[in-house]
């Protein structure tokens, strides 16, 4: 008896320290992570349901929501197609420059959001590379919807590819090779073998990409021009309301984005569990 109890004591900390550390960890998580999220909802409903509803259905809020949905609707499919192509290339073939390609995909994660917006201003802005030509042909990209889409595509660029590459690498290509050898066409193989195997990972990539597209602030802020009702996305609308000291309305609109964040976390848990199931 004494031998086992001594060993248990040696393998972990004394009870008081253990409880103290758990308590400290909970306090720090609450203070630094949970409180900022909780504060959004509490302040959003500060003045009641009717005020919240008025703030999120008001005309400028509605057009901001529609624009964010439009931008996300264009961004996500583009990055899904790229993610599938990049994952197929990297996880299924050996070629020269494979590691370089893998590293380059990650670049947007290392770039400041403001710089992500700046690069498109330098290419398409009035003084940019293509600015004069675009001006002659009356095409506006910066301070218009195409610029917002480009900046969002850049910022969310790696999400889908980053989810699919490790998943497809760990699954291996046996099943796909079998399908081809047995006479399936490329499309049949993709639809019947590849897609069912990667669907949960793909969905998780889509969830991350969607959440970031809806919530991106810095990059979009640089290229949008903040034209109310025309080029304001949800986060930019929140900024305007906040800077006008219209705090309740700002938090009401922000609460919509916070719901997206909470749903993202829930889906993450579910999809992680599903992917692990698929890997086994």
């Amino acid at each position: 008896m004494s031998a086992t109890s001594r060993r248990r004591i040696l393998r972990t900390e004394p009870t008081w320290l253990r409880r103290g550390l758990i308590g400290l960890a909970l306090l720090l998580t609450f203070l630094f992570i949970v409180l900022p999220l909780a504060a959004v909802f509490i302040q959003a409903f500060d003045k009641g349901w009717a005020v919240w509803q008025a703030a999120v259905t008001e005309e400028n809020a509605r057009s901001a929501i529609l624009l964010s949905l439009l931008v996300t609707g264009i961004t996500v499919p583009l990055n899904v197609v790229f993610g599938l192509a990049a994952a197929w290339t990297i996880a299924r073939f050996q070629f020269k420059g494979r590691n370089v390609l893998l590293t380059l995909i990650d670049i947007p994660f290392g770039v400041s959001p403001v710089v992500s917006g700046l690069i498109f201003v330098l290419v398409f802005g009035a003084q940019g590379w293509l600015g004069p030509w675009l001006g002659d042909h009356d095409i506006q990209i910066i301070f218009a919807v195409p610029g917002i889409v480009l900046a969002t595509v850049f910022v969310t660029f790696p999400f889908v590819a980053r989810e699919l590459i490790p998943l497809m690498q760990s699954q291996g290509s046996d099943e796909e090779e079998a399908a081809i050898v047995l006479g399936a066409t490329a499309w049949q193989m993709f639809r019947r073998v590849t897609l069912p195997n990667i669907k949960w990972g793909l969905l998780y990539g889509v969830v991350l990409c969607t959440a970031r597209s809806l919530g991106e602030f810095g990059a979009v802020s640089v290229v949008s021009g903040h034209i109310r009702g025309l080029t304001n996305t949800i986060p930019l609308h929140v900024e305007i309301l906040y800077n006008e000291y219209n705090y309740t309305a700002a938090f009401a609109v922000a609460s919509l984005l916070s719901v997206v964040a909470v749903v993202t976390l829930l889906l993450k848990k579910v999809l992680e569990w599903k992917t692990r199931e698929a890997r086994v």
């Binding site: 919530g215 991106e216 986060p235 929140v238 906040y242 916070s258 993450k268």
Partner: peptide
Amino acid sequence: VDALVDIPFALPTAVAGISLTSL
């Protein structure tokens, strides 16, 4: 609690910004 750790990854930065300022 483990799931809560990801909140800063998921919450849009502008929302975090106004919330922290108000706190």
